[in-house]
Amino acid sequence: MEDVFSFRDKVFNVDFEDRNDTGRNILINDSESEISIHSQDENEILMTLNGERIKAYSAAEKDDYFVFINGRQYMLKKHAAGADLSGGLPGSAGGDFVSSPMPGTIIKINCSEGDEIKENDTLVIVEAMKMENMLRSPVDGKVEKISFSEGDLVDAGAPIVEIGTE
């Protein structure tokens, strides 16, 4: 069965295939590699991939997969098997709204419903971890809906200001 992962805007289709002698092959976007797993527990994997020995740490929560290799963390998203991602990744296709990239407190809303706005106008300021973050409009348009007030806590990704573009 195929797994589908994405990293940034890249999609990876993964499949395994038993080799007739020992172990398995892994197919990533149809390119085939030999893979051997030497040891594996909940969060640590020691494997050889195409002749290279790799120590990786991994963890997952729902569809979010986190893998640490050579000092760097890769945040991957798992998608439903067979998902058609040819039209782009869900959520990343610029919905015309402004949301906070991390949870925080709204300290200022610079627009009102009905305002005409320009691309890059700062619409909302969110504070998280003692830092102010300016949320700018991705497009020219008109403010259609504001779903929060100053002082509210917001989750990452929740639309704060929705923008109509006609």
Binding site: F5, F12, I26, M47, L49, S58, V67
Partner: peptide, 8 residues
């Protein structure tokens, strides 16, 4: 990383 995630 994708390979590691797939066998996670």
């Amino acid at each position: 990383a994708v390979a590691a995630a797939a066998i996670h």
